[in-house]
Nucleic acid binder design. Structure first.
Lengths: 149, 149
DNA sequence: GCAAAATACTTTGATATTAAAATATTTAAC
DNA sequence: GTTAAATATTTTAATATCAAAGTATTTTGC
């Protein structure tokens, strides 16, 4: 009752680190994305629009990879963006298996409207850390992310 | 086409840090939880079982907070665990608004079976970092998590 | 050049997720 | 003590998510 897991020091440290990492990523993500509901956008929808805006039109599979989701999922996310006429699909002529997703004018306008405040939110949430601390965190995260993939 | 966002150095650093943090948390979480599908458990279901095992019976609301999910969501997660007879609900006599969730014998047996290999997975994923690095990461994460809640 | 394998995406089915509304119960105010 | 507010949970509606199966297209192997 109320006793947390107790194991070896190595285990306890690893567990505690994992929990802190998860909670921090979660807290920061929530904080940064809270404004999206004003535009009736989900995090995935916004991620898709942003990737298309900054990287240009791309295939479903690429987009899925960018926002760390499955391609099956992306189909639905894109479906919902298509319904709102924020993006459209275009089959490639040279390889009809591929479908490029493009921003519409409305989509471009929306992301351009949202981006500045989104960016400000990221800066606000992350600059709790100094530049040096951010670089340090980035390095540690990169190390963690690599291994085994 | 293929040009990533370019802004001030402060903005670029914050964005890059945010992306690395998200990707690291995501990669580590996926890696650590990959084994759960062997037991037909989702991450939330496992999280609920684990919290109940290490902290004892608790209310829906508390459990939701522990695993960082909404209480509405927890109702469904618990529903699915109840169907498999891994947990059961019990209304409190002194305050009938509260429902405590308890592990059943089967639930206890399952979490006891899974826990060692889960723990080993956490240790394997996290000990890519030295103990000092883990403490450093933990501190940075704690700092990030705090601000504004 | 045709069948087999690989690739790219969509569909399906089950669970998850949130926000908001609804329900039930207890506590507080008068 | 009875209504109002607060608390705890469940329900609902919409979207998300993954894994697995299905479809369409292209490339490869012979």
């Amino acid at each position: 009752m109320g006793t947390h897991y107790s194991g070896t020091p190595t285990e306890e440290l690893a567990l505690a680190t994992y929990v802190k990492l998860s909670r921090a990523a979660d807290a920061v993500t929530h904080r940064i994305n809270a404004h999206l509901h004003h535009h009736d956008l989900t995090v995935s929808q916004f991620g898709a629009l942003e990737a298309l805006y900054h990287l240009g039109p791309m295939q479903t599979g690429e987009l899925a990879e960018k926002i760390l989701k499955s391609s099956g999922n992306l189909t639905l996310v894109v479906d919902n963006l298509v319904k709102r006429r924020l993006v459209y699909r275009q089959r490639r002529k040279d390889d009809r298996r591929c479908v490029d997703i493009h921003l519409t004018e409305d989509g471009t306008a929306l992301i351009e409207q949202i981006w500045p405040s989104h960016l400000a939110g990221v800066v606000e949430a992350i600059t709790v850390l100094s530049a040096d601390e951010q670089r340090l965190l980035g390095d540690l995260c990169r190390k963690l992310g690599k291994k085994a993939g």
